[in-house]
């Protein structure tokens, strides 16, 4: 077994081209290995000391979040909290202070869990994922990153180097909420993210909703705009969004919830996420994470 510490991106990409697996905090890789889920790879390259992967750069036509930015930073960074609030909501719900300190955004999305908290927010905010290899750089829509539970579409030799988000606009709001049984060290039973853009009168111009832990991957709910656009959010709109989320979910039953329970509750979470996103877009301050601010989830 070999282990190398890369301090530049070129060193990391060269090691990955030679077959090494990247490790940042190790919160999936090491826990999985100790659990007997998957042995540690034969060759590892540590990427957590590469300065350019730890940057959050805003301004211009894209906001760039480096792949090894950890959840503790996402939940407090002014750019993320101010403009990409659903992502801060999600990061604040992950694990514990220790988990949020070692776990990175790149690790969370590349791990590909359908129950990941950061995925649904990134989908509704139109995130692109940057993948680099010794052969070059490509970006893809984050919805195309996942193909099955615990799986991603990156090619061998490719490293996730950043998540790219469109610049913030006026009267935008977003939120992520989840059903949980306890407040710490929890995985979403189901989760939902919403992002909206309003016009000056408060009518919805644009709305997106995505769901966690109700399908083999994070999924976006189709047809949301047809249900709510052109008017202020009202009870008919809320109910229609909840129904659409529940009907498009394809959940499994497992130790945490039955499929029927997940199908019902993901509609409730979608409605609450949309509600919080609209309230934020209207200028209301709802603290991160929404689960705590509005008393959603574990008491």
């Amino acid at each position: 077994m070999s282990f190398a510490i890369a301090t530049t991106l070129d060193q990391a990409l060269a090691a990955i081209a030679d077959g090494a697996r990247p490790i940042a905090g190790g919160s999936d890789l090491v826990v999985g290995a100790r659990h007997g889920k998957a042995p540690l790879p034969e060759s590892l390259v540590a990427i957590d000391r590469i300065a350019e992967l730890a940057e959050i750069k805003a301004g211009g036509d894209v906001t760039r979040i480096g792949a090894v930015v950890n959840h503790a930073r996402l939940m407090t960074d002014p750019t993320v909290v101010g403009n990409y609030t659903a992502l801060a909501d999600a990061a604040a719900l992950v694990g514990s202070p220790a988990t949020r300190n070692v776990g990175t955004l790149g690790g969370n999305i590349m791990n590909g869990s359908p129950a990941m908290d950061t995925g649904a927010p990134l989908v509704v905010m139109g995130a692109q994922v940057e993948l680099q290899s010794t052969g070059g750089t490509r970006t893809l829509s984050i919805a195309h990153l996942w193909d099955a539970p615990g799986s991603n579409t990156a090619a061998a030799g490719e490293l996730c180097t950043a998540v790219l988000l469109p610049p913030p606009g006026d009267r935008c709001g977003s939120a992520y909420v989840r059903l949980e049984y306890r407040r710490a060290m929890e995985i979403a039973v189901v989760g939902a993210a919403a992002a909206v853009v309003l016009d000056e009168a408060g009518a919805i111009v644009n709305a997106r909703v995505a769901l966690a832990a109700v399908a083999p991957t994070i999924i976006e709910v189709d047809g949301i705009e047809d249900l709510v656009a052109g008017r202020a959010l009202d009870d008919d709109g809320r109910a229609a969004v909840a129904d659409a989320a529940s009907s498009q979910a394809s959940p499994i039953s497992d130790m945490r919830a039955s499929d029927a329970y997940r199908r019902h509750t993901v509609g409730v979470m979608a409605r609450r996420a949309l509600d919080a996103a609209v309230r934020r877009a209207l200028g209301e301050e709802i603290a991160v994470p929404v689960n705590r601010a509005l008393g959603i989830g574990a008491a």
Binding site: F3, I5, I23, G25, G26, S27, V30, V31, R34, L44, A46, D48, S96, P97, A98, T99, N101, V102
Partner: peptide, 11 residues
Amino acid sequence: PVNSCSYLAVQ
């Protein structure tokens, strides 16, 4: 804070 059970010593 780090959970040292699940963190590689070499890191």
